[in-house]
Design a protein around this nucleic acid. Sequence first.
RNA 1: GCUGAGGUAGCCUAGCCCGGUAAGGCGCCAGCCUUGAAAGCUGGUGGCGGCGACGCCACGGGAGUUCAAAUCUCCCCCUCAGCGCCA
Length: 431
Amino acid sequence: MIDVELLRKEPTRVEANLARRQNPEYLQWFTDAITRDAEWRAALQEADRLRRRRNELGRAIGAAKASGGASPELEAEAKQLPTQLKAAEERERELAALRDALLRRLPNLMDESVPFGKDDSENQVVATWGTPQPGAEGLRAHGEALEALGMAEFERAQRASGAGFYYLRGGIVLLDLALQRFALDLLVERGFTPVEPPYLLRRAPYEGVTDLADFEKVMYKIEGEDLYLIATSEHPLAALHLGEILDEDHLPIRLAGISPCFRKEIGGHGVDQKGIFRVHQFQKVEQFVFARAEDSPAIHEEIRANAEEVFRRLEIPYRVVNVCTGDLGTVAAKKYDIEAWFPRQGAFREVVSCSNCTDYQARRLGIRVGKAGRPGKLVPHTLNSTAVATSRALVAILEQYQQPDGTIAIPSVLRPYLGGRAELTAETANR
RNA sequence: GCUGAGGUAGCCUAGCCCGGUAAGGCGCCAGCCUUGAAAGCUGGUGGCGGCGACGCCACGGGAGUUCAAAUCUCCCCCUCAGCGCCA
């Protein structure tokens, strides 16, 4: 949520920033929010005036009663005040609600360095690592490869749970766990605290961390309960300090979340649809940081470097893009995507999303920065980045490390987590 | 799930029965004192609106009664404890 005071003090700056998003609706909401805010302030003053009179009359009546007298004319005036006050308060509440609804729908202000562009085709490549090689003749799609190895059950999963679900079994499960542990160890080494968050969140904190549209499109709701399955551990990690005042001297707080992620919408169909690239459920190790405002650009680069390090150590070629204005989404002020190279698909595909959300989430969550037990008005910045989403990283490995006989070499950095094992070969038991 | 106790400022607590400007402590800030610090003393220390004088709000949320609600009534939410169930 944008600071309402910024809207009042620097409307032209806010407007110019919103204009870069090329969505006339935003400018309309912006204008309406300013109007509603001005009307609200007028309504507030009117209600305050009536409340003041009520308080004065109440005190006078009380004083009169205390000295044994009565004051019929004051009581007569006081008696008809509540009707007026009720109307004034209703107007005040309505205008505030209208303003806040508009304010909540407005996207975050974008960083100056976000490139202008219409959609993901215009994201700006800012770094590349490794040498993308075209896929060899006969390279199998990852879903086929997994099935051939006896390590995945897609049809059975569809019968049990529907499209977009999977059973994994055998060596791929151990590889999945190895990836998570590897990423977690890397982050712990770099000062992050590993966190197992709740996998379900109430609606109120959830509204603080995500685009409202996500409630319809992305999140699974638990029937009959005020609970949503998390779409990423970013969300419960952001809510960890809900309503708190963070000590300035304790920032930045670096957290490494590990959790399954649940998503209703999994995007369109595409190359190699069968498999685990687009699924309703996957495992993810996530970086999350609460930082002082002035530190957030540097922290953003730090978590990007950590995510890059994961793929470097896995020896998977990738590139980094600076996500453009048309592809940024509402919450982030700036976002890098890391796109790994998928030789079978012959394309770079998103495996990491790395965002600086500035004060947008923290303000909604009522989180502030204070010093030595003293509450302040400053709002911290929040940042998040994938370290590894195992579904996609596994697909990258299944393509990049697939051997001519269909077995999968294990990236050397992961071997210690698999008892030194060097490759995944066909499962024979329990077919 | 049942029963009980609770939710008051950054934190802790009083006030509630019996309606009348939300008291105190801790922490924090400033001043005094001190070579410096601690202690001690004095004052300050929430949010919103207003250029300001100032006013309003804030006792989990909402509704009601009343001239007036932290306080009375009703509904809801949350937390904790005990019991039950349970990996």
